[in-house]
Design a protein around this nucleic acid. Sequence first.
DNA 1: ATTGAAACCAGCAGGTA
DNA 2: TACCTGCTGGTTTCAAT
Lengths: 141, 141
Amino acid sequence: MIDDIDVSILKQLQKDARLSFAEVGRTIKLSASAVRERILKMEDTGVIKKYGIEIDHSKVGYDLEAFILVKVFHGKLKLLLSTIPSISEIEKAYRITGNQNIHLKVILKNQLHLQQLIDKLMPFGDTHTLLILSDVSSNDS
Amino acid sequence: MIDDIDVSILKQLQKDARLSFAEVGRTIKLSASAVRERILKMEDTGVIKKYGIEIDHSKVGYDLEAFILVKVFHGKLKLLLSTIPSISEIEKAYRITGNQNIHLKVILKNQLHLQQLIDKLMPFGDTHTLLILSDVSSNDS
DNA sequence: ATTGAAACCAGCAGGTA
DNA sequence: TACCTGCTGGTTTCAAT
């Protein structure tokens, strides 16, 4: 379904999603059209879910990032799930195993903003907030 | 530093980072070169950190995703931080507040793979693993 | 997977306000 | 400074091989 050439294409796009088909092809000795067809196929099959950008939120006025773990009240899960898309502060949301059942990554302006978000989440469950101090990934996979 | 036009450019790129300058410009009534200059400036100032792709890992043989919270042993933090980049399973790593001090997002093939990773992390601290059941973001911000 | 051709875009120069 | 137009070479796209 996916071969070594596809993997090396994916790795290049992970580093820079705006590389042209021609550029990708040059480094793996393939024509631009061949690269294009492989990438289109990976889009169609859903291997590539989307092309996105990473923003430094602290440079646009959002100085606080946090994880919020929610232990959802009995019967409130469906309502919370349908509410999540309307909360712009939530960057990513997952159902998880464990004592808490929802894991949120949130982007906020400041502590007041965090407080307001927690207030908004309170009707759905008990929250536990972990502030993000710094990104320590430095991941060039 | 950043105005409404920049914000709308960022939103478009978040949806599709491969949009051409011309395409972005068309939807906001701006020339391609104006869009290009704005984007270059946001790259230079670090607002845009990178262009990346989101991969559906389950379609390439990695069926397990998890968060691992690590309560790092006294004196082991620096060593862990320097080890993290060499662990390919770690997609993202953060220092956080709370009882645990490191938050990892990991991509794994299966439970055995998870076990091996936890074994690798054990020397650095006590781990607490939260399996990801599903993505419930549906976030078209 | 490749090539070839038409449409399109990136990058840059030079210009306006 | 922020935007524009016009130009050129490279790129995307699609069809044929």
